[in-house]
Amino acid sequence: MRLRDFFSVDAIDLDLSTETKDETLKKLVGLFHLDEKSEGILFKMLKRRENLGSTGIGRGIAIPHCRSLVVNRLRVAFGRHGAGLDFKAIDEKPVHYVFLIVAPPLEVSNQYLPVLGKIAQFSKEADVPERLAAVENAEGFLQLLEEKGV
């Protein structure tokens, strides 16, 4: 299983200009091109998950995630925010890199947890924040995932 296989170029936004955590979640959910109601439900679920504890894991990275029936397969998106966002992260520092993961309640190949784990593993590598900052386009982001062997 390779992480890059789960990302599509149109679900990568390297120039987020949102002002809040909520706006950012909405923007990233929008990259999945669901209908308006489904987007609303998904946003609500992600917010609920955030209310249980921030998914900002530190070092400028957040991994919001949830399961919901409004998606029929595992979906992932990535957003980069130059200025940084208040995500109430564990280290209380601004978040610049957001990986969004959403999966249906039941999946045939059960990829949700492994994908979440791989993104966590990737995020823990020492040079990743710096490398993500330097990525120039969506292809570059995908190449970085490949280079890191995740």
Partner: peptide, 30 residues
Amino acid sequence: LLEMQDLHMQRRALDEGGVRELETGLFEMG
């Protein structure tokens, strides 16, 4: 109903070893 089911899923997932470990470890969730 969709919202309730999603919440039930989240609730149930916290009883599963893998999810609970990740949520309490990586995300430091109580």
